[in-house]
């Protein structure tokens, strides 16, 4: 009987946990997108007014970008400084790939950043700022969309998780 109860509790908890995880991803995505926006905004300033070289610009962007996006930008700066003949875009691309497991961005979000890879640092100030601003606009749109999705889906996935746990217990009982 006790064993059965423990089993039932586990059966309820497992899908609930999955549901909360998925819900948490929806909660984190807008935050991460905002982090990238903050980072890129700093990057724009660094490029436009400071003409700061890329590793330093990335590093100060990382400081403004919050934990997740900050880690990626800082990693990109580190890779860039380590050398090995890579461009800033490749450094950022590698950093993003390395952290893919821990970020909650959709492929579409990554696409926005990926559009920066070939141009990052590769053209004059005017052009850089234009590309960065475009990415910022697209990120803002993505953030709005992510916030909307969060509002709609965050609670839903929690409910669905718990309820499917209960249903499973009932069916298996």
């Amino acid at each position: 009987m006790t064993l059965k109860l423990v089993g039932a509790a586990l059966t309820v908890l497992a899908p609930s946990w999955i549901g909360f995880q998925i819900a948490a991803r929806y909660g984190r995505r807008p935050v991460e997108l905002r982090g990238f926006q903050n980072g890129l905004a700093v990057l724009v300033t660094e490029v436009e007014y400071g003409a700061t070289p890329m590793p330093d610009a990335l590093r100060s962007a990382a400081r403004a970008a919050g934990p997740v996006a900050g880690a990626i930008l800082a990693d990109a700066a580190r890779r860039l400084e380590a050398g090995g003949g890579i461009t800033p875009g490749e450094a950022l691309s590698d950093a993003l790939a390395e952290h893919r497991g821990s970020v909650c961005l959709t492929p579409a979000d990554e696409e926005i950043l990926a559009a920066l890879f070939p141009v990052l640092g590769a053209s004059d100030r005017h052009d850089q700022v234009r590309h960065l601003r475009l990415a910022l606009d697209r990120l803002a749109a993505a953030e709005a969309e992510a916030a909307d999705e969060r509002r709609r889906y965050e609670r839903m996935y929690r409910y669905v998780g718990v309820l499917s746990g209960l249903a499973l217990v009932l069916i298996l009982m």
Binding site: R152, Y159, V160, L166, A167
Partner: peptide
């Protein structure tokens, strides 16, 4: 099962 399914369907529909 019926009640859970009903609630789940409602939540999903709302989302």
């Amino acid at each position: 099962v019926g009640i859970i399914v009903a609630v789940m369907a409602t939540v999903l529909k709302q989302a």
